[in-house]
Computed example of a mutant assay.
Amino acid sequence: MAAGQLFSRTTQALFYNYKQLPIQRMLDFDFLCGRETPSVAGIINPGSEGFQKLFFGQEEIAIPVHADIEAACAAHPTADVFINFASFRSAAASSMAALKQPTIRVVAIIAEGVPESDTKQLIAYARANNKVVIGPATVGGIQAGAFKIGDTAGTIDNIIHCKLYRPGSVGFVSKSVCSYSYSCLCQFHLSHIKDRFWVNSLKDHFHKWSMGASSIFILRCI
Score class of each variant (00 low, 15 high):
159 I>S: 05
53 K>F: 09
118 D>T: 00
150 G>L: 01
13 A>T: 08
72 A>T: 06
109 I>T: 09
61 I>C: 01
127 R>E: 10
93 A>C: 07
100 K>W: 08
106 V>D: 05
18 Y>H: 11
213 A>P: 11
135 G>A: 09
75 A>Q: 08
203 K>W: 09
43 I>Q: 05
90 S>I: 13
4 G>Y: 09
153 A>F: 10
180 Y>R: 12
123 I>L: 11
92 A>K: 02
207 H>F: 07
13 A>E: 13
108 A>D: 07
145 G>Q: 02
114 V>A: 01
85 F>T: 07
211 M>Y: 05
65 V>Q: 05
177 V>N: 02
24 Q>E: 08
135 G>T: 01
38 P>G: 03
119 T>P: 03
207 H>V: 14
111 A>E: 10
16 Y>Q: 06
95 S>E: 01
20 Q>K: 13
190 L>H: 07
31 F>A: 07
148 K>I: 09
16 Y>M: 11
215 S>G: 01
219 L>I: 14
73 C>A: 14
154 G>R: 05
18 Y>I: 11
65 V>G: 15
83 I>F: 04
72 A>L: 15
116 E>G: 15
175 K>D: 12
83 I>M: 09
48 S>M: 10
104 I>F: 10
142 I>G: 01
87 S>W: 04
24 Q>K: 06
13 A>M: 10
56 F>E: 08
142 I>A: 13
123 I>T: 11
91 A>Q: 03
7 F>K: 02
171 G>R: 05
164 L>K: 04
173 V>W: 09
35 R>G: 10
6 L>T: 02
28 D>C: 00
164 L>M: 11
151 D>A: 07
214 S>Q: 15
177 V>H: 06
52 Q>M: 13
14 L>T: 06
181 S>H: 14
13 A>W: 10
113 G>V: 07
28 D>F: 07
89 R>Q: 15
146 A>P: 02
155 T>G: 12
179 S>T: 12
138 T>S: 06
177 V>D: 06
151 D>Y: 13
185 L>P: 12
168 G>K: 03
219 L>S: 15
102 P>I: 11
